[in-house]
């Protein structure tokens, strides 16, 4: 059965788009048929992270308004079989996302794909509401940092109250994905630990992605990190998360400090 998953966070810049791309690609590499839907109308970026910015002809708003159909609009990924992108508009504003238009598009996508991943815009307004409204599952992307955690708490509250599932007295299955985790700062006591974050937000953990050079490099070249650097620590965190989404029972790997002896001596001197 097809699943609609929203990737959301409240706060901007925590890694929603990176996560949507990396998780989507990982699911597709497991043989699933996946579509990534960009809900950030006016500030689209998923096309850029996916390296498809020059292939956008029609977008989500065209489909909602009936100016194009899905098959004209979906962009097929050239690297991963079964991975598609539904880009959004760069010029329109979020009000173009009508409730019934979005419902119709999501229903149609459910018929074609195993996974519909909705990349939410930052904030708690209309665009974010539309992205989460139809979700069966939610990945809340959070950085181990106070403002991100507070905003995530608001978003969790909204997922529990203003979505279709909530209105039908059901519950969205929620997962926490901690990104930009820095084991060294955690070791020094200057970053909240995974346990701290889980204790505060109390939803199940999907994975912990370390702050990583590989993610920046991947976005520079327009590829999900799970495609361009599949062996990296970040990519394996995302692949593990994808397996967990598929219902596999995988132990979460918490990134640890990996320092050579020389580096260790050097850092000690630097204090």
């Amino acid at each position: 059965m097809s699943k609609v998953l929203v990737v959301t966070s409240g706060k901007g810049g925590v890694g929603k788009t990176t996560t949507t791309a990396a998780l989507g690609a990982a699911l597709a590499m497991m043989g699933q048929k996946v579509v990534l839907v960009d809900f950030d109308v006016g500030l689209r970026n998923l096309d850029l992270i996916m390296g498809a910015e020059r292939r956008v002809v029609f977008d989500l708003i065209h489909v909602i308004q009936g100016d194009a159909n899905l098959s004209q609009t979906l962009i097929k990924d050239k690297r991963v079989e079964g991975l598609f992108l539904l880009p959004t508009s760069q010029t329109r504003d979020k009000d173009a996302l009508t409730q019934e238009g979005v419902s119709r598009v999501i229903d149609e996508l459910r018929g074609k794909f195993d996974w519909v991943l909705c990349d939410s815009p930052a904030g708690i307004e209309h665009g974010a509401q539309m992205a989460m409204y139809h979700a069966d599952k939610a990945v809340i992307v959070v950085n181990p940092e106070v403002s991100s955690i507070r905003d995530s708490d608001r978003i969790i509250g909204m997922l529990n109250s203003t979505t279709q599932k909530a209105k039908e007295n059901g519950e969205i299955e929620k997962f926490l994905l901690i990104t930009r985790y820095d084991p060294e700062r955690v070791g020094r006591g200057d970053m909240l630990t995974t346990d701290d974050v889980l204790d505060i937000l109390s939803i199940p953990l999907l994975g912990v992605v370390p702050e990583s050079q590989d993610i920046l490099v991947s976005s520079n070249v327009g590829a999900p990190v799970t495609v361009s650097k599949p062996k990296s620590v970040a990519a394996s965190a995302y692949s593990e998360a994808a397996r967990r989404l598929m219902g596999e029972d995988v132990q979460v790997t918490i990134p640890t400090e990996r320092r050579g002896l020389l580096e260790w001596l050097f850092k000690r001197k630097a204090i």
Binding site: E145, V146, D153, G189, D190, L192, D196
Partner: peptide, 13 residues
């Protein structure tokens, strides 16, 4: 500093 962050968040939330 992380225990400070933890306590502030607990109270605020």
């Amino acid at each position: 500093s992380s225990p400070v962050a933890y306590n502030r968040l607990k109270i605020l939330l």
